[in-house]
């Protein structure tokens, strides 16, 4: 934004989280982790992390246990598909169920 050192006026954007707003509001369903099944939580050491690897939006942390940033998780459900331990399930957002809407 504004004028840089080169003194040419140019449109320059600055990086920030949430460029598209709180993308968690796009969700139709949200991921729920069962830590009793998650390999990382069970082994209590760095392991697996496939959900972290495959998340297109980088909203899953590579921590023990893993955490999902619900403010920005778009609810795609890839983590639930990819988890080899079936530790993640997608649950419909309350109030957004199609049945509830009519």
């Amino acid at each position: 934004m504004g004028t840089r050192d080169c003194r040419h006026i140019c449109g320059e954007s600055s990086p920030a989280i949430g460029e598209a707003g709180k993308t968690g509001e796009w969700r139709e369903s949200f991921p729920v982790i069962d830590l009793k099944k998650c390999v990382v939580a069970k082994q209590n050491k760095p392991a697996c992390f496939l959900c972290w690897l495959y998340c297109p939006d980088a909203v899953i942390t590579k921590t023990i246990p893993i955490q999902i940033d619900m403010e920005y998780c778009k609810g795609c459900g890839i983590c639930a598909q990819i988890c080899p331990a079936h530790a993640i399930t997608m649950v419909h957002e309350q109030g957004l169920c199609l049945d509830d809407m009519d």
């Binding site: 598209a20 993308t23 969700r27 297109p56 939006d57 778009k74 890839i78």
Partner: peptide, 18 residues
């Protein structure tokens, strides 16, 4: 690649670019 970008849910481009 920061959270809260404008790609569709499940976008493979977002994953690849990351």
């Amino acid at each position: 690649l920061l959270q809260g970008n404008r790609t569709c849910p499940g976008c493979a481009l977002s994953l690849a670019y990351r």
